[in-house]
Nucleic acid binder design. Sequence first.
DNA 1: TCCTTAAATGAATGACATTCATTTAGTGGC
DNA 2: GCCACTAAATGAATGTCATTCATTTAAGGA
Lengths: 229, 229
Amino acid sequence: MPAATSATADSPRPEAKPRRRAGRPAAAVLDQDGITSGALRLIRKSGYDGFTMAALARTLNVAPSALYNHVSSKRDVLVLVQDHLTSFVDVSTFEKEPWDQAVRDWAWSYREVFSKHTPLIPVIAVLPVTDAPKTLAMYEAVSAGFSRAGFPQERIVSAIVALESFIFGSAYDVTAPADIFDSGSMAASTPNFTAAVDSLAEQGFERPADVAFSLGLEALIAGFGALRT
Amino acid sequence: MPAATSATADSPRPEAKPRRRAGRPAAAVLDQDGITSGALRLIRKSGYDGFTMAALARTLNVAPSALYNHVSSKRDVLVLVQDHLTSFVDVSTFEKEPWDQAVRDWAWSYREVFSKHTPLIPVIAVLPVTDAPKTLAMYEAVSAGFSRAGFPQERIVSAIVALESFIFGSAYDVTAPADIFDSGSMAASTPNFTAAVDSLAEQGFERPADVAFSLGLEALIAGFGALRT
DNA sequence: TCCTTAAATGAATGACATTCATTTAGTGGC
DNA sequence: GCCACTAAATGAATGTCATTCATTTAAGGA
């Protein structure tokens, strides 16, 4: 009962890239692009908790085992998703703005994208760039921007890594509960910290995580900017 | 067959804190401290992959279900572990060194501890401090140091959050494979990035992650230092 | 000695990811 | 047009987990 073949018109599934090797047979229904966009759709609807291989297969009208003809593990799917998401990070700014503003735009955009996908961070952080072409393309655009701005060649990668580390860490903050620093019954024994927390609260910022991100990012931009020749 | 009661002298299990409520009965064998140190021992031996509730129970000579009399989930155990680890982070430096050196020492120590425990980062990053007393104590020591150094009250928390974000992100880098930036066959299409990577490699640093960490940390310290009055 | 109760037990349960022997259906060679 | 080949889909296992629950065990206060 090959019901999977019929594209039951309930969802606009964007199947692309035949991906077949020269003169060899093939069917269709499923490929890496389809899996990627199905995964992204599923994650948006059900979050990372609801993101199971079975649920992904259901999204794609396919048996779970069929997925393994195109990816070798769930982690593989996460890598595909992360690489796809990276293409939403804005690097165009490096071709339009001065270095400092470009870094600022890029960093905010990068954090924005992955703050909704923090479960990917442990995957991205240690992923060889070879496995993620769009991510590599992002690095290329950013490196070019740094280079053009007179950044010393041998420090470009370190600077990008440092910024990225800060961005990934900050992405988690965005999702933290608002009362994360409420010391509760232990307030009495932590006077300095409690005072600091209260003092920040009094400022009434809507997104405290944005304040911390801005503070750190500006320090990094200022510090790195001084390295340019 | 209560073989669990006999402390089969094969491992020095540091059971402490009777933790019993006034005049109520109790046995022993297991408590949160014992679970925490057993978990840490297991993680050190088998890593986070080998860290299962069943393996933890075996480490403690107990049935898996027994654990649930003391913790309500595996996540709970991770929280206990993370809080325990935080007590290894060196904050003594805030009472001995000038502010900038203290921040430097603290940050390196913090990253060092958690670079061996990156699977805890997603847990820590969004954990209310109420659930982690030793972590709260660390924040208190750091806040006090910032305060004493003339840091504006209402920016202390944001500065700490920014530093912590950078530290967590950087902890992942330590564990990344050495060839993570090897662009392989795509090198030709990413000339700027490839050149930057090669240029860094030529420097021959033993731990490139340390270079990036130092670069970012010094920028943050310099930037934040300027805020002091 | 008995009663109460925290803590331990071991046998389910239910999610999962992943594997495998089969089946299905295009495609290129004839 | 037919065949043989082979990528891709199927569905029925498998094995690993965390977690639950009905029972049992034993210490301490009465």
